[in-house]
Amino acid sequence: MLVKLFRHDFRAHSRMQIPVLIAIAAAAVLGFFNMLFLAGTGSGQLISEESDGYVLMLGAAISGTFLIFLALGIAMAVMSVLIFVRFYRSMVTDEAYLTFTLPVTAGQLIGAKFLASAVWFLIGSAALAIAGGLIYSGAILAGGGDFREAMVDLWQEVFELLAENPLTTFLLILCAVAAAVRWYFQITGAILFGASVVRKNKALAAVGMIFAVNFLVNLITSIFPTLGIFGFGVLFTGMVEFYDFNLNTWLLVQTGISVILAAMFWWLSVRIAKKSVNIE
């Protein structure tokens, strides 16, 4: 049932996310040509400096670059918001009549939605990375360089940087993944909790609860690790006693907190789904 739920959720997401992906692709193509013009020197230059309107076009290209990167950032934010809009619609609005009458358990429901959301988040991230690569390639080509060589050099630098501290790199990735999972479940838990305590204005209640929960979680994830690493003295003196600050320890603590909070919010989501409706 989990696989079937995932498949249907994935398709439901695609109906909302594909237009955003198309927008990202369009921005990437625009950005590529914009970069060709903006970064063009020598053989890559699209328009001569002596031509009329060069300054105007240069200004437009600079603004365009800014707008394109802004558009890509907004697209990623929209994709993330749509993930939760999809969750809200299937669990709280009229679609919930269908969701909660399917012969599946609460755990399967919540789990499938998480998996589908995670896949779409990765797809969105990959789309952004490809868009960034396309725009970067425009800059390389405009400068007369070899794009393939430039990419190899770039990745080599990144790998060398990461290989300097493999443990830190691993913990960084683990911490980021744990934080992303925690972040997903805290928002879905907040949506379900907010919508379950009111009978009207459920959307408003859900949004309010998201802000409240996020504030609380940020408090927990910043205060406790700070106290743990820098000591309780920081509360009274405001001064940080610099112990041997260990980044790896800090990352491990953050990962642990994220895992615990993610498990808590998962339990909350399943419990609310079961209590409010008879799923199991």
């Binding site: 439901a12 009229d94 199991e280």
Partner: peptide, 23 residues
Amino acid sequence: EPGVRTKAMVSYLPERMVFDPGM
């Protein structure tokens, strides 16, 4: 009691549209 097993044998028509209009 109403649960996963009964949902498999109960066919429910609500008074509202439950499908995503984009389907």
